[in-house]
Amino acid sequence: MVKNISRKSWSTITIFVVLALVPPVAHAFDNSFLITMFNRAVIYAVAAVGLDLIIGFGGMVSFGHAAFFGIGAYTAGILGTHAFDGSDFIFGWTGSNDAFVVWPLAMLVAAFFGLIIGLISLRTSGVYFIMITLAFAQLFYFFFVSLSQYGGEDGLSLWDRNAIPGLDLYDRNTFYYLCCAILLAVWFLLSRLVGSRFGRVIIGCKQNERRMRALGYDPLLYKLTAFCISAAIGGLAGALIANHSEFVSPGLLHWSRSGELMVIVILGGLGTLVGPIYGALALFLMEESLVSFTEHWQVILGPVLILVVVFFRGGIVGFLSGAGKATVKSGGDHG
């Protein structure tokens, strides 16, 4: 985990430079769709970096992360709807359009449900945990499908993007760079976190929970905290995607979305934090280029995923840091 620090920071610098260059390049080629597409990837990367915290460092394979994504998006969507038409949301509060209110709230709501889901599912592990998180996500999926006052199956339009004083979030570049800044902040905070005392505890829990208990730690407490942090980041990403597409629907919580987030993490490099950013870009670029060949692009994407899993361990970042397969076997040669 401490290996190749310099190479890893190079891969981090590179990816953010690339992200920063997207708008000027897009304008040069007069292709503003490029910004929209990259913006989507950046938002998914935010959620995926958060997911990497629990899968890559905490060993909690959550197959239900789309739930938090959707919960965050619906928080923005529902509050925005009430703010738009001035109707009552709860206790006479008519919602809000203020990003400084909506986004933290999206995180808080997602973390709250993360707490409940985590409390039940974290008492299990392995395959159980995978299936249970998937089932919980499905619970929320059906909840939003049946939430007819907020569009039910058809979803809900966000009439106004959230507002930040001094920024025009309708401006493509502004919103894009804002999302990039958030991604950078999330990446940076989590990088600090995994190197902190707390980080060492959750990494220890991933490796040997029984030993951690013998050392005086209650794993559930730390895993639950990490799970909630990850859920909150998922909620934030959800609020961003709601603003990006100006629309929320149960599709955001579909189980395949959870799968997609996991794919992004693995494709980019598990347990690297920067990997998921690469993963998101790779997945979206792959999608876009495959779509231009055939509408049945998933018939190609599926086997590609299988090949990645079987032959390309370590993901893109593992490949870039020159380690690839070898890291798994001989990590101690720097000692």
């Binding site: 976190l193 190197g195 902190s196 005392r197 707390f198 980080g199 060492r200 505890v201 050392l215 005086g216």
Partner: peptide, 14 residues
């Protein structure tokens, strides 16, 4: 670290 308690420190490099 187990003896020192402060496990909910998220920022300082351990």
């Amino acid at each position: 670290q187990s003896r020192t308690r402060h496990h909910f420190s998220f920022w300082r490099a351990v």
